[in-house]
Nucleic acid binder design. Structure first.
Lengths: 139, 139
DNA sequence: ACTTGACTTAGAGGGCACTATAAGGCTTAT
DNA sequence: ATAAGCCTTATAGTGCCCTCTAAGTCAAGT
């Protein structure tokens, strides 16, 4: 079987794009649980790559380490916690959507400001029109 | 005139939703420049409200304090810096768009995971189908 | 044999953006 | 007059998430 390959921390670090420091930190926090060989060396498997991949997606939504820890704890507690896990992720989802919406709203203002600069630069908008006045066009 | 009202820091703080600490911090960083009365008290005007409003929009796009400081410095240097200011904001715009796209991609994964939980909960997806397998449906 | 990389615990350092305190003195409103 | 709120500078603390070091040991590959 090809999927039983064991990765040592350095190799794994390269694969998932996290420093060995971070990997050990996550392990301390209980987010990643590598296996150990006879001599106490950590090793990671394909399953760990997938798990870290998922964790990174969650982190990328803005999920905090503490929430991730909760999630992991629920997972460890078995199938009975599935509704709780779903609820936790649904909250993260909601927060992430709100965050994106907010960013987009702020980006809109920035976009307008850049348009305004462009208008000013090519003189298609009055030199003296204020940004506030300009913005009102879009309200 | 109604627009010459002067706001003291406490009042202004309420208006813009920043603590007095933060207002003084921003002032230290050169981002906000309140006026002073005869006795040395800070006061803010309508123009300052608008400026802080814009600053908060910029911050909301993910623009850093250092970039904000650069922007303010360019503004102070006059109209000749308009192209530089535009370039600075265009970079922020680009970064913000990239950030939003990344968040959305990560959110997609989270959405799928929640769908998967829902499928599992109402048994419309096999109990044993792994998340990874499920995810492949969308690749 | 030797180099490289792994192991441990515990704690320090760093970046960012605040947030707060101290301590003493002024101003403004009731 | 009294209290609330403002002023100053300088400095420390907070929260998050790493990032790194120390200091000594151990194991694997060339």
């Amino acid at each position: 079987m090809v999927n039983v390959k064991k990765y040592k921390i350095g190799e794994f670090s390269q694969l998932v794009g996290l420093s060995t420091f971070t990997l050990r930190y996550y392990e301390n926090e209980g987010i990643i649980k590598p296996h150990r060989d006879q001599s106490g060396m950590r090793y990671y498997t394909m399953a760990d790559i997938k798990w870290v991949g998922f964790v990174l997606h969650l982190k990328g939504t803005g999920m905090k380490i503490t929430a991730l820890k909760e999630y992991v704890a629920l997972r460890a507690a078995g199938d009975a916690t599935i509704p709780a896990r779903r609820a936790l992720l649904a909250q993260v989802q909601k927060d992430c959507e709100a965050e994106i919406a907010e960013r987009q709203a702020n980006l809109q203002v920035l976009n307008h400001k850049i348009d305004w600069y462009d208008g000013k630069l090519d003189a298609s908008i009055s030199e003296t029109e204020s940004f506030e006045t300009y913005l009102k066009r879009f309200e």
